[in-house]
Design a protein around this nucleic acid. Sequence first.
DNA 1: TGAAATGTTGGGGCG
DNA 2: ACGCCCCAACATTTC
Length: 474
Amino acid sequence: MAEKVNIFWFRQDLRIADNPALTHAAESGRVLAVYILDQNDQGDHGPGAASRWWLHHSLKALNESLQGQLNIFRGDPQTILQDLQEKYGASEIFWNRCYEPQSIERDTAIKKFFQKQQVEVKSFNGSLLWEPMQVLKNDGTPYRVFTPYYRKGCLNADAPREPLPVPQKLNLLKSESSETLESLGLLPKIRWDQKMESYWEISEAGGQQKMQEFFEHGLRDYKEGRNFPAKSCVSRLSPYLHQGQISPNQAWYGAQAKHSGKNLDHFLSELGWREFSYSLLYHFPDLPSRNLQGRFDAFPWKEDSRLLERWKRGQTGYPIVDAGMRELWETGYVHNRVRMIVGSFLVKNLLLHWKHGERWFWDCLVDADMANNSASWQWVAGCGADAAPYFRIFNPVSQGQKFDPEGTYTKQFVPELKDLPAKYLFSPWEAPDLVLKNAGVQLGENYPHPIVPLRESREKALEAFSMLPKALSA
DNA sequence: TGAAATGTTGGGGCG
DNA sequence: ACGCCCCAACATTTC
């Protein structure tokens, strides 16, 4: 009798090691491994351009590590899974859970559909250390503040699953499909991605390598060093975590095996922030579109497409902001410290709605992740859970001086200022004419004047904020 | 995971 | 020796 066929559906878990659903599927039969490009995925939050580019390379690498046995489809997942199930007489379907609201809705419907057909769907936790439905306050409601969420909700709960090895026996099955990786059309029409390729090794092995490098070098001075964009102290694991080329469990236990103390704890808590974001999105599914603090609905946001465009293009006249926005455009990534600076600038100095920032990041970031992106934008805008108080406004001049003192980072992405001395790098409008001349900088010609005045824009933001209804006191 | 305004303190120059 | 002023350095408050 032929061995039983299991369907395994790859989603945001594009790896072979520490993949619980794949491991279980492999244990009890041949595995028909499928990836489905879901055309209706996430409604207006379908994958952005940078995500699609990353996905293309992820699938390419994944297919190679599966010896070309990855089955690629496009369309409605339920229809495709149903066809495959009937064709191969599969009795079980395996996947790792997704947590975006639309994914939950889709997966619930598919599970229900197959239950009626006597086909068992087995889902697993492959992407989170602690799943949102488990982490609740004693009164049964979700946490809205990070520290108790992490300390009590996570650290006091059961330890996360230890990473699983690559399945020993993986007997794969190749099906016919009208799609190929190329026919999915994930690569951009305009080839802006060619430079980006040099920044990233997009594969499960590439993720592992990046993680090991981080453990060897970055983690040593993580707590302090992570604030300095010119240092290579941050992990840059976010895109791999988003698509699942590495699992948070591998990072969690891998870091603990190599380090201890405050640097380790700080890195683990950053993984905790990712968990917190997922928890918020799960319990507050409107997170991507609605202010978590409803009182912000009355905020007098400006609509100014010119200012927005200047921000997107890195032409604000504030060098650290422009460096960050150009890093985003050029590499698909922005250093965390700089994300806070550019976010604060958009929302508080330009007074533009955080949704514009969320949108742009969604399209440009290789780590674009619905939970992290929306929770973080709400955090920086002050309207989210455990958010920065609104009056916490970053000063792009002092932030630059403090966290990029040599200007190494800023000059890398804003090369027209490369000869400006550090003293004036973050406020070129204050530089004496001679200094500008010697550096070859002509404000308004080859580098913009500030698009808004710093002090006044800050005061306007505080004034607008003071008009909001007060927060309910605890 | 802030910055600016305001308050306090203490050392040194100087009459 | 003393009081006064200045100001840097640090602390606290406020937005």
